[in-house]
Nucleic acid binder design. Structure first.
Lengths: 337, 337
DNA sequence: ACGGTCCCTCAAATCGATTCGACATCACTG
DNA sequence: CAGTGATGTCGAATCGATTTGAGGGACCGT
């Protein structure tokens, strides 16, 4: 048995001839290699990384950001002989707070892709199980690894760009504030309930630039349609903003579409900026002004954080840089006089 | 130990009080439930379904069809306590033919989402391992379960719709013919190398309607940009077709965009039909004429096929019905005289 | 012929849970 | 009080691979 084991795993001294003999015998007996279950139990490792994708799959895979990060992650994990187990996030508020897979599935490391809020029950479940966890775009904690980007600095750059163009009436369209995922204008007192780290940071960037938004509109998800709703609402009232800084490209493109539908010219009447740096062919010929984040590298960074855990290192913390890409959707502020 | 096992699994007679006592003791000792690896080995089941998504993730998740089917699948598998392991398809022809995960990962059942060709090396690997396999949109074989739709009948309906509108010069834009994924006009002699089952069936539907396409254009993947390339090529030459039957909605919408760019009116100058029944907001105000397939149910059907295998039943075979949805992208053939 | 390498064989422990049978309790019931 | 269930305890086998250590040939050079 030892020899057979060596023949398959290749670890240890074994002559090529013997190896072949074992392999032949295995084929003759219909043995197709070591049973992964036994191997995993013995090794104490499953070779599986559980990845919590936000929400229902359909919703989160419609977001190119998640998909591209996931792609980068899988590419990094593949060579390490690690597989990705898909774990749906808490989609149904009436159901259990965390997916049963998170409680029972075999995984060496867990990744929460869409940061989540501070008191996320998923984090609690993972802590209880003692599963090392990588948090993407979440709040740092001593026992979890985090991967993020310079959300705050990026948003600050975008806002400063708008300031330089002379805009003073700047509104903001944001990602969800908390797990309730509301939609609509945010009253000032709700700013305290800003649980979602990514939203908080990107909003802080606006403030950093010295801007107090004339309106803040929360959306329940980063989707074009929610951007359109936001844009329609913000742009059809009186005293409309001359610039709208959005927290994602999909939201921004929805706002652009809404503006066009209202007969407003972009950027002559209203400037729009996004965040993420996606290619948005359907906005053609316009090119969105946006903060570009390195999505594939973000996925790779998550992969490296996983690798750190598996090699026994403690939780790591990574932050990637972003760059402002100026497109055609921002321009000088209109003369309001 | 037996009692503890019963306390956690709940299978077998155990008094509520004892159960609680066990749970409390477990909490006190820092034992967080049965180790999934031991459990799986004993049970002989991993509770994992390996899903091969075509190609690189980024490419296949840009296809809403895959995403929606996957979503339906995950929804069905969740209640059965099964998880989905993502397995990248063979993306790099120079690399290994099949992903190592397919050879070594623990899985009770495998699903190949994007049918594949007859001689797919992945099928061979799975057979060797004795892993029950569900093939989506693939060719039926005695030892695999298949889930498909009435591709042939659907395409026939779409084609007959074009015939009724008076079209005689009908071209077709197709999915890949084989694993080489060529792009361009298909010469007649290449029709023999039509390995991809889904492409073959949809093309057969056109023939069933009694139509011989004036041109057949193969695309390397179901993406808008490939549809645009195809549309540009087919519509800019002389003797352009008056109708183009596409094998997917993304391809069709690319063709529509190409037509618009060439200054052709849809459907007055050229009619375009698709396949899948997606919502394509960026074609607005047009609505694509297309063959609607039930994507979520398709995912559920895959889930049931998996369930069949796990309950000991043999490979099953399911085919779902499709319906023709007439939109605004098809109309009467132009008068060519 | 002898010491020394290599490589192979064999037996046994281990990973952690599930499950089975035998047996011990205990509370009821007739 | 004996009989009957329901439930808990204990020991042992099992799932399948990995790994270690002891020992045995085969072959090398001297």
């Amino acid at each position: 048995m030892s020899t057979a084991s060596l023949a398959f795993s290749g670890a240890g001294p074994i002559a090529a001839a013997t190896r072949q003999r074992v392999l032949d015998a295995a084929a003759a007996l219909g043995y197709s290699g070591p049973n992964p279950l036994g191997r995993q139990l013995r090794r104490g490792r499953s070779g599986i990384v559980g990845v919590v994708v936000g929400d229902s799959l359909r919703r989160s895979f419609r977001d190119p950001v998640s998909v591209q990060v996931l792609d980068g992650l899988v590419s990094t994990l593949g060579p390490l002989d690690l597989g990705v187990l898909l774990i749906p996030g808490s989609s149904d508020p009436s159901g259990p707070a965390v997916d049963p897979l998170l409680e029972t599935a075999a995984m060496d490391v867990a990744v929460i892709m869409w940061g989540g809020t501070t008191d996320d029950p998923m984090l609690g479940a993972l802590r209880r199980r003692g599963t090392p966890t990588v948090l993407v775009e979440g709040q740092h904690a001593p026992d979890v690894a985090t991967v993020g980007i310079d959300d705050r600095g990026g948003m600050r750059q975008a806002t400063e760009h708008l300031l330089e163009l002379g805009h003073t009436r700047i509104a903001s369209v944001t990602l969800p504030f908390d797990r309730c995922r509301g939609e609509g204008l945010v009253p000032p007192d709700q700013m305290d309930h800003l649980d979602w780290e990514i939203t908080r940071r990107r909003l802080a960037g606006v403030t950093d630039a010295g801007v107090t938004p004339v309106a803040i509109w929360e959306t329940p998800a980063s989707l074009v349609e929610h951007g359109r709703t936001a844009g329609t609402a913000l742009l059809s009232g009186p005293d409309r903003p001359t610039a709208i800084a959005c927290q994602s490209d999909l939201l921004a493109s929805g706002v652009v579409l809404a503006a066009r539908e209202l007969g407003l010219r972009v950027p002559e009447d209203v400037s729009v900026s996004g965040f993420d740096g996606l290619d948005l062919p359907w906005l053609a010929p316009d090119v969105l002004t946006t903060v570009v984040q390195p999505l594939a590298e973000k996925g790779a960074a998550v992969g490296h954080a996983v690798e750190d855990f598996l090699s026994g290192a403690g939780p790591s913390r990574r932050e990637l840089a972003v760059t402002l890409r100026i497109g055609t959707t921002t321009g000088p502020a209109p003369d309001l006089s």
